[in-house]
Amino acid sequence: MDFLAILTNALRGALGPEAAIYALAAVGLNVHFGYTGLLNFGQVGFMLVGAYGTAISVLSFELPLGVGVLVGIACAVVLALILGIPTLRLRGDYLAIATIAAAEVLRYLYRSEWAEPLTGGVFGLKQFADGFFELNPFTGALDLGPFDFSARALWLMVVAWSAALLAAGFVGLLVHSPWGRVLRSVREDELAARSLGKNVFAYKMQSLVLGGVFGAIAGSLLAVNSQSLNPDSFMPIITFYLWTIMILGGASRVMGPILGSVVFWFLLTFLDSFLRQAIGAGLIPSSVLAPSDIGAVRFAAVGLGLMLLMIFRPAGLIGNQKELRLDVR
């Protein structure tokens, strides 16, 4: 077993573009849940409309990629409005089910034959992000001993991590303002906030839109990252990943989602590499675990991790344990 290789892989996973993209989407989720208490289980839906908004703009309407990203953001705003108007007046648990259902409805819709002229249906879309890679200032690969990142990956990493950090910083500014105070009061008790003259619905909507926009940008980056797009890449499990990331880092902490994503992807890639090596080296007999089962093991591990986190350390890595003890609801 090559532990160095496993570690390098894991580190690469922790720093790679995917970790950054998930961090960005989780920052959005943190606005929803961490600061406003909205149980959004449809964050992947925002990523989907963001990604498709971008790709369709480029492919079907020949707009520049940058404009495409703006279109993706606009789609997320519309989705937030459509979703929010009926559901934000509902009790939290209804919202959870309505959002997960809405994300699934979107996925069914985008992959349907009706939408095929625009979305490519089940075949998806490809090659729409050339504009992004043409701007790549990096000319060669980065080689740091065991690490090496291609120029392409490097460019994506820089952009995605910048986006995630900027988003987190912006959220930090916002939540430490009177606006953030109202948001947190809505999370604690929306009736109390209303009794003090706060338009709770408007704040929830603003929160839903803001977090959704971060989700949409993450979706666009995801599409750019792989240069291909398929509705079935936007399964509900992505949302569960994001929840795990947010809680792992620490909900209602500005840097929680960033830290959470790094650690999450480190652990996930570590497990992946480790199992692959262990099966390859015969340490785990293939009768017990075939290489094709590794994907399932990793999903199971995420599930178990989410459970254990929520039971034993719901405040996550940098969450405020004291704050959590007050959670009597």
Binding site: W179, R184, E188, D189, L196, E323, D327
Partner: peptide
């Protein structure tokens, strides 16, 4: 309905109306 995870001061400050900083 005390807002549990806000400090006492924040609880009271929240009550003020027409706060400029409450606009997003």
């Amino acid at each position: 309905k005390a807002l549990m995870r806000l400090t006492t001061l924040e609880n009271v400050m929240l009550g003020a109306t027409a706060q400029r900083g409450e606009r997003m």
